[in-house]
């Protein structure tokens, strides 16, 4: 009972409950939901693996977004940056049909990551140096980003035939788990280490709560802001690699479309408030997995992809309402009233 009380008060309680309810729904209505098989080629296969696999790029984006939102900002350009990174990578590899890359693979990967980091530096400059509101500052790249990606690919969809490129979005031969999952896992470990072992997390929180006070306390606010936007750009670059490798092509119009919205949702579902301050890495990861589980579940019960947003919207509105202070207060009042009533009845008896 004590454990239960402790759990219900922890910040992870709500996201975890939502995820658990979804999984329960799946366990009842979807056949063989939790079954994991080993395929002939040695890869693991099954819905839980599939969910984690599909959620990987969202998790990566959401990690970067968590830090940005914790500083009181927002980065709505990540979807466009995914497109830029995908375009850069495919451009470097080239669309040669014989499968010979134009540049070495490692250079292409580094170029894609660099594109993400440059985008982050741009956003960081506007927010940290010019003190422009984050939403407006990142709106610029969101608008121009897809144009830049199309400029890079000359409006074409570049298809890459180079075999190892597909390993990022698929499996490296001989490894049981999808590569995207492993990348996401590495990023999660990296972020948790940064958060726990350095004072960066504390500084990010203090910047999010009060910039001026942090400056007086000696926190380098500009540097911290710069760092979070660059990290968000880096995350978007990584997600761009995964997204383009999944379809082995760079589609400037559709790569990462609406992913910024999903990433922001994942962060919010995880309990981080958009005003900045406290943030929950674990919550974000669970939020991202919840969104993907919802998607997979809906596909499994036969809801089409274009109708899915309606159900997603209802779930999201429900969860954020339950998380709101006003709702918690109403719930407390209701419980107190009930306790009063019970006490009165007891005294009457």
């Amino acid at each position: 009972m004590d454990m239960l009380k402790k759990f219900s008060q922890s910040s992870l309680a709500l996201p975890l409950t939502a995820l658990a309810l979804l999984l329960l729904f799946n366990a009842i209505f979807v056949d063989d939901f939790f079954k994991i098989q080993v395929m002939e080629n040695g890869n693991l296969y099954g819905r839980p693996i599939d969910i984690l696999y599909r959620a990987s790029s969202l998790i990566i984006l959401a990690l970067g977004m968590t830090f940005v939102i914790a500083t009181g900002g927002i980065d709505i350009s990540v979807g466009a940056v995914v497109a830029i990174s995908a375009a850069t990578c495919c451009l470097m590899l080239g669309g040669d049909i014989s499968g010979v890359p134009a540049h070495p693979f490692i250079i292409a990967i580094l170029a894609a990551l660099a594109a993400g980091i440059i985008a982050g530096i741009w956003n960081g400059t506007l927010v940290a140096k010019f003190k422009i509101q984050a939403m407006v500052a990142t709106l610029i790249l969101m608008t121009a980003g897809r144009g830049i990606a199309q400029l890079l690919t000359d409006g074409q969809i570049i298809t890459v035939y180079y075999k190892p490129f597909s390993y990022i979005g698929g499996n490296i031969p001989g490894v049981m788990l999808p590569t995207a999952m492993l990348i996401a896992l590495c990023m999660v470990v990296l972020v948790i280490l940064l958060d726990r072992k350095t004072s960066l997390g504390l500084m990010i929180q203090s910047v999010g709560i009060n910039q001026n006070a942090s400056r007086y306390a000696g926190v380098k606010v500009t540097a911290v802001l710069f760092a979070v936007y660059i990290f968000s750009g880096f995350c978007a670059g990584t997600a761009g690699l995964i997204e383009s490798s999944l379809i082995r092509a760079a589609d400037a119009n559709n790569a990462g479309l609406n992913m910024e919205m999903d990433a922001i949702l994942a962060v919010t579902l995880g309990g981080t408030l958009m005003v900045g301050g406290r943030y929950y890495i674990g919550g974000t990861i669970i939020g991202a997995i919840t969104i993907q589980t919802l998607t997979t579940t809906m596909y499994a019960v036969g809801v089409s992809s274009d109708r899915l947003p309606a159900i997603k919207a209802i779930v999201i509105l429900l969860i954020i309402t339950i998380q709101s202070e006003r709702f918690k207060q109403m719930f407390r009042e209701w419980r107190m009233k009930r306790a009063d009533k019970a006490a009165k009845e007891a005294s009457h008896a």
Binding site: I74, M135, M261, I264, L265, T268, L273, M274, V275, A313, I316, L317, I320, T321, S324, E325, R326, F327
Partner: peptide, 11 residues
């Protein structure tokens, strides 16, 4: 519910 306009209207 004093929720963020960004998230609500996104919903």
């Amino acid at each position: 519910f004093k929720l963020q306009p960004f998230i609500v209207t996104l919903g």
